[in-house]
C-alpha cells in the first residue's frame, strides 16, 4: 500500500527584524572598522631605542592600531580581569590582566613588522595568537608602557 509522505516544509529562515535589517550601524555603534592609532616616535640613542615626543631627524615613526571596544566587550573583559579578595571582602580589578586582555583582543596591527615580517601580528578567532602576544611582550618595557598608556586614554575615557 502506498504511503503518502508528508510534504517537507521549507525551512523557515531565521526571523530578522525588518528595522534592523534595513538600518546600518548607528554612528555610535562599534564595528570592525572603528579603530584608533597610537603613534610611537623612537630614536636610537647609545644603542637604546628611546621614546621622543614627535617626529624629527633620525626619529622613527611607528604606528599601533587598536579596535574600539563596545560595551559588551568592555564588561566581558572587566569581568575576566576581576577577582574577589576574600580577606578584604571586595572585588579587585587586576589592571595588568585587563591591559593584557585588551591588547590580545583589540590590537589589530602595527608597523613594527614593516622591516621584519616575523613580527607580523596574527589573529585566531579574533584574538592574538600566542606567538604574536610573545612579540608584544618582547617590546622594550618603556615602549610597551607608552602604547598601553595611550591605549587606555581611549578605552578608559569615561
Amino acid at each position: 500500500m502506498p504511503v503518502v509522505q508528508p510534504k517537507k516544509k521549507p525551512s523557515q529562515p531565521e526571523e530578522v527584524r525588518v528595522d534592523e535589517a534595513l538600518m546600518s550601524p548607528g554612528k555610535y555603534e562599534v564595528t570592525e572598522e572603528n579603530t584608533f592609532t597610537v603613534d610611537v616616535y623612537l630614536m636610537l640613542k647609545k644603542k637604546v631605542w628611546t621614546l621622543v615626543s614627535g617626529s624629527g631627524d633620525g626619529v622613527h615613526h611607528e604606528q599601533v592600531v587598536f579596535r574600539l571596544w563596545n560595551y559588551d566587550e568592555m564588561v566581558g573583559l572587566r569581568k575576566k580581569a576581576t577577582t574577589y579578595d576574600s580577606v578584604r571582602r571586595m572585588h579587585v580589578v587586576d589592571n595588568d590582566a585587563l591591559n593584557r586582555l585588551k591588547i590580545q583582543k583589540f590590537l589589530m596591527s602595527w608597523t613594527f613588522d614593516k622591516d621584519n615580517p616575523r613580527l607580523k601580528l596574527h589573529h585566531v578567532g579574533g584574538v592574538l595568537t600566542d606567538e604574536s602576544w610573545t612579540h608584544v611582550k618582547l617590546l622594550q618595557p618603556s615602549i610597551l608602557r607608552h602604547i598601553i598608556d595611550k591605549m587606555n586614554e581611549v578605552y578608559e575615557r569615561s
Binding site: 534592523e20 548607528g26 560595551y71 559588551d72 581611549v154 575615557r157 569615561s158
Partner: peptide, 17 residues
C-alpha cells in the same frame, strides 16, 4: 533583548560614562 543587543555594541566608554 533585541534593544540590548544594539546597546551592547555602542562604544563601551560612552555607555560607561
Amino acid at each position: 533583548q533585541a534593544c540590548y543587543a544594539r546597546v551592547g555594541k555602542v562604544f563601551g566608554s560612552l555607555v560607561d560614562a
